[in-house]
Write a protein that binds this DNA or RNA. Structure first.
Lengths: 244, 244
DNA sequence: TCGTGTGAACCATTTCACAGCT
DNA sequence: AGCTGTGAAATGGTTCACACGA
């Protein structure tokens, strides 16, 4: 008997699935906006450029939410994915590095449209500290350990130059931040237990360069040249070694 | 006998490896800057947070470049990875959408430090068109089909608002651009054969949210909570179906 | 009839473990 | 003695194919 509704013991969700869920989310929101009450795995799959079986498998990990012969209820599925992702909660975000990039991120649709709340902005430049960006004042990095709201933000976004990134990451970790999203083109070191993800322009460009070269070199699609990807990297750290 | 030096028939390189190569690159550059002539798979692995065997396997796909008992020659390995990635070539890039984000990207270390040449800037806003950004003038989107340099750029970067992204992608494709890096929070549709990658703040935040929830829920590290990742998504499109 | 949910087969990637070179 | 390169085993993820329910 498949677990019904709010699953008390959620199955293990593979990392590969986790990164697809937000994509399905976005497609669902789109379809809901277009008035589609219901959506099939086939439709989701086409838009996401994946196999329909994969969509069904992914979604079935969250529970049995579809209706045979009909598909999935759009709004209901959105809610379920939200729940699985934990997005229904409030995750305060601190952005460190309020240059061009930081400002762009703060004002971006990525934050506002998806319920993440920017709690604090930090910079080191005295000309920037004290400025108003959106609804917030930029604070000095050294005040990181005592956030405006009194509690450490859940997520730290690093949008400083590469040279400052490690130092900022250290400061975030010391302040009790449990996860870091790094935009600086720099490999970071953080303690085990801190969630770390990278967003990196030059890495993406290099990956594209690779596939461009291949597409050009082999006239025949040696690697099928239609490589469409959502940030398809996977340097996920497993346990360094379960102590035997 | 392992193929030596410039391999005329390069092995197939798995996608998973392709995305790690730029990371190794960055670490190597770092070590070279620190004066390390040579580096071991163990050292690379530690910094990249991966298994050393993986590093060796990845690198052995490019050829046999290491020296047993010693490790890899740092500078030489950098050159080899560059070659594998095709970064030694000139890939002109067009950036469409010169708002906060576009400007941040154009001025970022990601471009300048990694040899990608920005060939064209485009926007739709008449107030922006004609402006000077870095060494370039912003041109109007409608001039996309006739790029300043006369030849279509190899890579198109989309940094417009979500609402304009599909339209811009279409224009890029029509202009002959073979690959797109999309920063807009929007699922795009492009013809088969066009390389498409996404960089997406809100997706990353949602993925982090998932792991934060899990880390919090299960006191025991249900999924080992140290999930460190390089943009680990993988919605890669395989051939829709090899026509039978 | 249509489309989900899912075992089972398949394929890709990771890790182990060790032979072989320096 | 140290570290690469790589078969072979283990793991993880994808796709097939079909029973089942609406």
């Amino acid at each position: 008997m498949p677990t019904d509704r709010a699953d008390p013991r959620p199955r293990r969700i593979p990392e590969a699935t986790v990164v697809r869920l937000p994509v399905y989310q976005r497609i669902l929101a789109e379809r809901l906006g277009a008035g589609e009450q219901t959506v099939s795995s086939e439709q989701l799959a086409e838009r996401a450029r994946v196999n329909a079986a994969k969509v069904r498998k992914d979604l079935s990990l969250l529970g049995s939410f579809g209706t045979r012969g009909t598909g999935y209820d759009t709004a209901f599925l959105i809610a379920q994915i939200d729940r699985a992702l934990g997005v229904h909660r409030d995750w305060p975000v601190a952005v460190v590095g309020i240059g061009n990039l930081g400002r762009a991120l703060v004002n971006s649709e990525g934050f506002s449209l998806h319920g993440f709340r920017i709690a604090d902005l930090y910079d080191r430049d005295p000309n920037v500290v004290g400025q108003r960006v959106g609804p917030l004042l930029v604070r000095h990095i050294d005040d990181l350990h005592e956030p405006a709201t009194g509690e450490a933000p859940a997520i730290g976004v690093v949008s400083t130059p590469a040279a400052a990134a490690q130092e900022v990451a250290d400061a975030l970790v010391n302040a009790g931040v449990r996860s870091i999203l790094n935009f600086a083109p720099r490999v970071l070191t953080v303690p085990l237990g801190v969630i770390l993800r990278y967003v990196d322009l030059s890495i993406e460009l290099q990956v594209i360069s690779f596939y461009l070269s291949r597409a050009e070199a082999g006239a025949r699609p040696e690697l099928p040249s239609e490589v469409a990807m959502w940030r398809s990297i996977s340097l996920s750290a497993r346990d360094p070694a379960p102590p035997p």
